[in-house]
Amino acid sequence: MPDKRQILELLDQGRDYHEISRLLGIPPGQAYLIATGVPADNGDAVTRSRRERAGVLPSRTQRLVNDREVNPTSSPRVHAWIRRRAADDAQMQRAARASGQG
């Protein structure tokens, strides 16, 4: 099993977690957890002191455990759903009309 020192040394060499995972034969999320002590799936609170640990990525660590990450806000189906929800919200429609925006 790889240890924290090994993974941090590979990071210092400029390798990313995906490359490290291939070199060490472990999933990238596991490499991240070993190096930082923080789960890549955001299953734990990341405090200021944890963000300052060596190897911690500033964001988007979920992709280390699920590389099929999707941004649903760019989906036409999601936009259509939002439009339907907004159109069906009578209280919001009244508020928009009252403010001159609807």
Rank of each mutant, 00 (worst) to 15 (best):
A90K: 01
R48F: 07
N42I: 15
A87T: 03
A86M: 05
L8V: 08
L57G: 04
R68D: 13
A80E: 07
A87I: 01
A45Y: 15
D16K: 13
R83I: 00
R60S: 05
W81Y: 04
H79Y: 04
R15K: 12
Q30T: 11
R22H: 02
Y17M: 03
A96N: 07
R63E: 05
Q62P: 03
L57T: 00
G29V: 06
E52Y: 10
A40P: 14
E19H: 14
M1W: 04
G37F: 03
D88N: 03
P28T: 01
H79Q: 12
E52G: 06
E52H: 14
P72M: 01
A40M: 03
P58E: 03
I82F: 08
G102R: 11
M92Y: 12
K4A: 08
L24P: 09
Q30G: 12
P28M: 02
R22V: 01
H18Y: 11
S75I: 12
G14P: 00
R15A: 04
I26R: 09
L57W: 01
Q13E: 08
P2C: 00
G100V: 04
R5Q: 06
V70G: 01
V56H: 06
D41R: 10
Q62Y: 15
A31N: 13
P76L: 07
A87G: 05
R68I: 07
S49D: 11
R5M: 08
I7S: 03
T73Y: 10
H79L: 05
P27E: 02
L24G: 09
A45M: 15
P39N: 12
S21C: 10
A80F: 01
R84A: 11
R85V: 06
R53T: 02
L11T: 03
R50L: 15
H79K: 05
S74C: 14
M92S: 08
A96Y: 05
A40R: 10
G102P: 08
R94V: 06
P76I: 11
V46I: 15
A96D: 13
Q6A: 05
G29D: 00
S49K: 15
V46Q: 14
G100C: 10
T61M: 02
A98C: 06
D41M: 01
S74A: 14
Y32D: 00
Q91Y: 13
V65N: 01
A86G: 06
M1R: 14
R48I: 10
V38W: 14
R53F: 01
R68Y: 14
A31Y: 10
Y17R: 13
Q30A: 09
Q13V: 00
L57D: 04
R68N: 14
P2E: 12
S59V: 09
A40S: 08
G25Y: 04
G100M: 07
H79E: 11
P2W: 08
Q30K: 13
M92W: 12
N42Y: 15
R85L: 09
V70L: 09
S75D: 13
